[in-house]
Amino acid sequence: MSVTGTKHHTLHSVAVAAPAAVVYGIVADVAKWPQYFGPNVHVEHLEQDASAERIRIWATANGAVKNWVSRRTFDAEGLRVDFRQEVSAPPVASMGGAWVVSPVGDGTSLLELHHDFSAVDDAPEHVEWIKAAVDRNSATELSNIKELAEQHERLDELVFTFDDTVHMKADGRDVFDFLDRADLWPQRLPHVARLDLTEDEPGVQVMAMDTSTADGSVHTTESIRVVFAPDRIVYKQTTVPGLMTAHTGRWTVAPSGDGVDVTSRHTVTLKPSAVEKILGEGKTVADARAYVHRALSTNSTNTLKLARAHAEALRG
């Protein structure tokens, strides 16, 4: 199998009604990408300093979950971030490029996303697959950045994070198994009406779930989970309820005293245009925050309590 071949180049761009520094800040803060960008599921920092970083990214490409290792270098003065995949996922043989932000006028900017890539065996079908994935993901990412940058003054209001923690007098391995085996949740969790789970690659779970909330409504969500045994599971909802534009989260299991502390963390981005449509006339973003927080926290806490009962019973 040959991994070298013709180098292909693409350019995608978008005009943004926001200062260039704001746009650059969004591009540079890769830890928040799963929250900001639809295709991005999770980012792990492998190395990091002021001028560069090595990261592993999990993201969707043409409907499949891929992961790769990239190195990124920063030019804050030039408003540029260069990237190069160190370990690519087939059919990509090599991939790199740059994000370039240019001030255009009074509080506006142009964001360009450059890619260069080669395909495994230089096969035409591989080239077309990569081009389709680059086109789709680039368009989504640029649109997301534009939307975020243009409402950057509201991000503190629209994006929020909260934790729920339950102490369990149990073995952490039993708790982790309960959280990992989400395929059994319809039998174990009353608020889960349906859950379909596939795990084609060990540690990467794709699932669709119907859950009921305290007010009796049922929400259908689709998620991708990345499992880091024995103490952490991270996830990204790829289909979210109407009040949100993004929802990421994680489960963590940490030793504590006579057992473990198990924490569910949620980070939510609200969709302002949906608030009155869903909650009623006159309702505000603050009302939506309270509603979403209550619904997610209730389900998470119920899951944690049932996990505690299950794991503590196993310890005896």
Results as ranks from 00 to 15, higher is better:
2 S>W: 07
2 S>C: 06
5 G>L: 06
14 V>E: 08
14 V>A: 11
17 A>D: 15
19 P>D: 04
21 A>C: 07
21 A>G: 14
27 V>M: 01
27 V>I: 10
30 V>E: 10
31 A>Q: 09
34 P>L: 05
34 P>G: 02
37 F>L: 13
38 G>S: 13
40 N>A: 14
41 V>A: 04
45 H>R: 07
47 E>F: 05
47 E>S: 15
47 E>Q: 14
51 S>R: 15
53 E>Q: 13
57 I>C: 07
65 V>P: 05
69 V>H: 05
69 V>D: 14
72 R>W: 11
74 F>V: 04
76 A>H: 09
76 A>L: 03
78 G>H: 09
81 V>Y: 11
81 V>R: 00
85 Q>W: 08
92 V>A: 05
96 G>E: 14
96 G>Q: 10
100 V>Q: 15
101 V>T: 11
101 V>F: 02
105 G>D: 09
109 S>C: 11
112 E>Y: 06
112 E>W: 00
115 H>G: 00
116 D>N: 04
117 F>R: 05
120 V>A: 04
123 A>R: 14
124 P>R: 10
125 E>N: 12
126 H>L: 09
127 V>A: 02
129 W>K: 04
131 K>G: 13
134 V>G: 01
135 D>F: 04
135 D>W: 02
136 R>P: 04
136 R>I: 09
137 N>Y: 03
137 N>E: 05
139 A>E: 14
140 T>S: 15
143 S>P: 07
146 K>N: 03
150 E>H: 03
151 Q>S: 10
153 E>A: 14
155 L>E: 03
161 T>M: 09
162 F>L: 09
163 D>Y: 05
171 D>W: 02
174 D>S: 12
175 V>S: 05
175 V>E: 06
178 F>M: 02
181 R>Q: 13
182 A>D: 10
183 D>H: 11
183 D>P: 01
183 D>N: 06
186 P>W: 05
186 P>N: 02
189 L>A: 08
192 V>N: 09
193 A>H: 15
195 L>P: 00
197 L>P: 08
198 T>W: 02
199 E>W: 07
203 G>Q: 10
205 Q>A: 12
210 D>S: 08
214 A>L: 12
215 D>I: 09
217 S>H: 13
217 S>M: 06
219 H>G: 04
227 V>Q: 12
233 I>L: 09
233 I>Y: 06
233 I>F: 04
234 V>D: 03
241 P>R: 12
243 L>N: 09
244 M>K: 09
245 T>F: 02
248 T>Q: 07
250 R>P: 01
250 R>Q: 14
256 S>E: 13
256 S>N: 14
256 S>P: 07
257 G>S: 03
258 D>H: 13
261 D>Y: 06
263 T>M: 02
270 L>P: 01
273 S>T: 13
276 E>Q: 15
277 K>V: 12
280 G>R: 06
281 E>I: 10
285 V>S: 04
286 A>R: 07
287 D>R: 12
291 Y>G: 00
302 N>G: 15
302 N>R: 13
305 K>W: 12
307 A>I: 01
312 E>T: 08
316 G>I: 06
